[in-house]
Simulated assay, not measured.
Amino acid sequence: MDPLILASTPEDAAALRAAEAHHARLVGELTARVTLLLTGAGRDPAAGRRIHRGLLAFCDRAVLPHLSASAAVLYPAARALPEARPLIDGLIAEHACLSGLVGALRSASPAGAIADARALQVLLAEHLAKETGLVLPLLALAPGIRLSVLHADLDRRLSDGPSGADPRPAPRTREGGQAGGGGGPEETGGA
């Protein structure tokens, strides 16, 4: 049974569900990549480097663009609601922390990146839980704000991305690999 979703329109309810699913995919993919780094970095240095590069590529392709798109689309709309301003200020501060962790990962060795990767995983999960549980419902219920329109803009920005590539993960095959590309999340090209 679906949880109760409160929204001004059915379209806004659908947008809320889609955003929740997107957040779950982001956290799930990051968790998988961090787990690979935790388990693989010490065993095989070459695999550790590949996993580390794949984690950075995922951050560049999906995590950082999500943060940028949220700040550009959702946060200004939520900031118009006086009760949401302190929350939005806190989320913007978290963006700086998340970006800093990605920067730390960029300059660390695979083995040295483990703590930063885990911190990124935990902070992103908490950050997206606040977006999902607080910001999106506020927007979905706010008079005069159409979450469905905001979500469409967010999707467009994420689909266009800095490289024009689609940041969403490739469909999984029955064997657990990714369609059209052999390996799993440790590859730098597929996610």
Results as ranks from 00 to 15, higher is better:
M1E: 10
M1C: 05
D2S: 13
P3S: 07
P3H: 10
L4I: 10
L4K: 06
I5W: 10
L6R: 14
L6E: 13
T9Y: 06
P10A: 14
E11Y: 06
D12M: 08
D12L: 07
A14R: 08
A19D: 08
A19G: 12
A24T: 10
A24E: 13
R25Q: 12
L26Q: 05
A32D: 12
R33M: 05
R33G: 02
V34P: 03
T35Q: 10
T35F: 01
L38I: 02
G40Q: 10
A41S: 09
A41T: 00
G42R: 02
R43S: 10
D44C: 06
D44T: 06
G48H: 04
R50Q: 11
R50C: 04
I51R: 01
I51N: 01
R53A: 15
L56E: 03
L56P: 03
L56W: 03
A57V: 11
A57S: 15
F58E: 02
C59Y: 02
D60M: 07
A62N: 10
V63G: 01
V63L: 15
L64I: 15
P65K: 08
H66E: 15
S68I: 12
A69T: 09
S70R: 01
A72V: 07
V73C: 11
V73K: 06
L74N: 05
L74D: 08
A78T: 05
R85M: 11
R85A: 15
P86H: 08
L87T: 15
L87H: 07
I88A: 06
D89G: 12
D89E: 15
L91I: 06
I92M: 10
I92L: 15
A93Y: 09
E94A: 14
E94L: 09
H95N: 15
H95V: 13
G100M: 12
G100H: 11
L101G: 00
V102M: 05
V102W: 04
G103R: 12
A104L: 02
R106P: 00
S107N: 00
A108D: 12
P110T: 05
A111M: 09
A111F: 01
G112Y: 03
G112P: 02
A115L: 14
D116Y: 04
D116R: 00
R118K: 12
A119Q: 08
A119M: 05
L120I: 03
Q121M: 03
L123Q: 14
A125K: 04
A125C: 04
E126H: 07
H127I: 03
L128K: 04
L128S: 05
L128A: 04
E131P: 02
L136E: 01
A140C: 09
A140L: 07
A140R: 00
L141Y: 01
L141N: 10
A142G: 07
P143E: 11
S148Q: 03
A152N: 08
D153G: 04
L154G: 02
D155I: 03
D155L: 11
R156W: 04
D160F: 10
S163F: 09
G164S: 13
G164C: 13
G164L: 13
A165C: 13
R168M: 13
A170R: 14
P171R: 11
R174D: 14
R174Q: 12
R174E: 14
G176V: 11
G177H: 13
A179S: 13
A179C: 11
A179R: 14
A179Q: 14
G181I: 01
G182V: 11
G183T: 08
G183D: 09
G184T: 11
G184H: 07
E186V: 07
T188M: 10
G189A: 15
G189R: 14
G190S: 12
A191N: 08
A191C: 14
